[in-house]
């Protein structure tokens, strides 16, 4: 056991010595890998920052049936009752919003108060707000119901309130898939970079490998420094990538925050959680070691 630990310590020392022997090419490799690894990190930062905002918004389709301004309160109630009767299995709730209540809630909004004061009477129609039950094919069902109800007498039009939220969620879903694709591409780049680095180093250490074998080195002993090289390169590149992504978010956040505040909102981009970052570092290290193992196995067959 002690002997194995000593061999690992020796392998680590050999790795660091080889790393230090070619400082510029080693650092250049690290920087390239770090910048590439920073790309999915920045993408993940956008997604993890946007997701809570979207989650807080209702994505359950809410249909608002606007009555004609000439429709009476009893006609509005009749529409609400008909909706309840005909589509009871699809709806969660039905709520009548009388025109007076709608006007009152608008008046409570300072932005609308002055404009409404100038009007001689209430321009708003009665409305029926219908919340649908969630389930499969929700968006299609909501569209179908909106089309059907829009044709009813005294109904002016039907508005699907949460369509834009669904669109935003679809964009995020697309973003998530895109991020996975980007992560796979980055993994391939890391794999190729480490593979090539290890292959070049194995070629320059050819004589040392041959001598080590001559004096009784096992294949594990020969390969171990290269595995350390791959794992350390992957880990260091991932740590540098986090640093680079963190630094890049600073100026980005200045611009994003300014935009969000102009809409009266607070929004800032932030890196994924520490556990996600730890997994990223670990994955990069493991990927580097696996790539190094593959490379050194192929490059030291002599």
């Amino acid at each position: 056991m002690k002997s194995l630990l000593l061999q690992h310590r020796y392998a680590l020392a050999v790795t660091l010595r080889r790393f230090a022997a070619q400082p510029f090419s080693s650092l250049a490799n690290l920087l390239v890998m770090a910048l590439i690894l920073a790309l999915p990190l920045l993408g993940a930062a956008v997604l993890v920052s946007a997701e809570p905002v979207v989650r807080d918004m209702s994505v359950t389709p809410e249909l608002t049936v606007f009555m004609q301004t000439s429709a009476s309160a009893s006609a509005t109630q009749a529409v609400a009752d008909r909706i309840t009767q005909e589509t009871a299995d699809q709806i969660k709730s039905v709520r009548v919003v009388p025109r007076a209540q709608a006007l009152e809630s608008l008046r409570n909004n300072p932005a609308w108060r002055e404009a409404l004061a100038a009007l001689p009477d209430n321009p708003l129609p009665d409305a029926v707000v219908v919340t649908l039950k969630s389930g499969d094919d929700l968006a299609a069902r909501a569209d179908a119901l909106a089309g059907q109800w829009g044709k009813w007498p005294q109904v002016d039009h039907v508005q699907l309130d949460s369509a834009w939220v669904q669109r935003l969620e679809a964009i995020l879903r697309f973003g998530r898939i895109g991020l996975w694709f980007l992560a796979i591409c980055v993994a391939v780049v890391v794999l190729a970079t480490v593979f090539n680095t290890v292959r070049l180093q194995a070629m320059t250490q050819r004589e040392e490998i041959a001598v080590a074998r001559l004096v009784g080195a096992t294949e594990s002993f020969v390969r171990r420094p290269f595995l350390y090289l791959g794992a350390l390169t992957g880990t260091a590149a991932a740590l540098l990538a986090i640093l680079a992504a963190g630094l890049a978010l600073q100026p980005l956040n200045g611009a994003v925050l300014g935009l969000a505040r102009s809409y009266g909102a607070e929004f800032a981009l932030h890196l994924p959680s520490l556990s996600v970052l730890a997994v990223e570092v670990l994955a990069a290290g493991i990927l580097g070691a696996l790539s190094a193992r593959w490379s050194v196995t192929r490059s030291t067959r002599f």
Partner: peptide
């Protein structure tokens, strides 16, 4: 080198 290969302390 032959000694380090066997895991002997430096």
């Amino acid at each position: 080198l032959p000694l380090l290969v066997t895991g002997l302390p430096i």
